[in-house]
């Protein structure tokens, strides 16, 4: 174990190296003590299980069969919390149960969660999942193994990935590496780093050989950080209320003055 540099961290998810083995899913379950899924068959094209992220699966490999002419292809994508630079979930959360840390992870404090699901409404990637089975339900999502990172380790998924599809390091280095890969092997990658600019940038940078919408990613997201969309207006709130107080205060004063003036004139109508 080494003391990590204090710079913010990121991961590269290189889907051209992913062989869909799901070691990442199992390592994640192991580290986060999630129970096993009770499944009967598969939930997606190929061997996908479950159909989506949920309270027991903080990361998910999607199986996608893409046919070009007569040539089949099997492309794997990975769903997990993007640990945004400007997380919408943290902004929406009324109890500050979600916070962005200096090292990168958007961490979740379960004891503060009231299960209101505002974060689920806010997240553009649809990541936080609700534990519907629980009488005291909380949301669940990838922790970026914040405890491991602080101890100088890599996240569990990055540790077990056999192909190096998952890289972990300082965000600057990961961005540079992602760009280098696209530049040196343009035939292998589409020229896009998913997570670089979306909603103001995230901590997970995905690379792919096919357009991201073909492998289950949400695309078409704005570059503006989500909190900015509401912040523009919410920022005004105290001023608005101050103005409101001022206006109604002034009206009240005027009305009060009028009624006390008319009283003193002795109107007895």
């Amino acid at each position: 174990m080494t003391t990590p540099s204090a710079k913010p961290k990121a991961m590269i998810q290189d889907n051209t190296r992913c062989i869909g083995c799901r070691a990442c899913m199992i390592a994640c379950k192991s580290w986060n003590n999630r129970p096993a899924d009770h499944t009967e068959f598969f939930a997606g094209a190929g061997y996908q299980n479950p159909i989506d992220l949920d309270a027991n699966n903080y990361t998910l490999i999607t199986f996608n069969e893409i046919v070009t002419g007569a040539q089949p292809d099997w492309v794997f994508g990975r769903q997990l919390c993007m640990h945004c630079e400007h997380p919408a979930c943290a902004s929406a959360c009324p109890t500050t149960a979600l916070t962005k840390t200096a090292l990168g992870p958007v961490v979740f404090n379960e004891s503060r969660c009231i299960g209101c699901r505002a974060c689920m409404q806010a997240c553009p990637f649809l990541i936080p999942k609700y534990d519907y089975e629980n009488l005291n339900p909380k949301i669940h999502k990838c922790t970026f193994c914040a405890d491991r990172i602080e101890a100088g380790l890599k996240p569990a998924c990055a540790t077990v990935c056999p192909t190096g599809a998952i890289s972990f390091g300082d965000r600057d280095d990961m961005v540079a590496e992602a760009k280098r890969r696209i530049a040196t092997a343009p035939g292998t990658y589409i020229p896009e780093i998913y997570g670089l600019d979306e909603v103001g940038g995230t901590s997970v940078l995905h690379l792919s050989s096919v357009p991201f919408e073909q492998i289950g990613y949400i695309t078409g997201l704005p570059k503006t950080p989500m909190p900015d969309l509401t912040h523009r207006w919410l920022r005004v709130t105290p001023h608005f209320f101050a103005l409101l107080y001022a206006v109604f205060g002034a009206l009240t004063w005027i009305m009060h003055r009028r009624s006390s003036r008319s009283e003193s004139k002795g109107d007895t109508m």
Binding site: R22, D37, F41, Y47
Partner: peptide
Amino acid sequence: PWLVGLVPSAF
């Protein structure tokens, strides 16, 4: 159980 959850049944 975790592995069975991924690939449960004969196919």
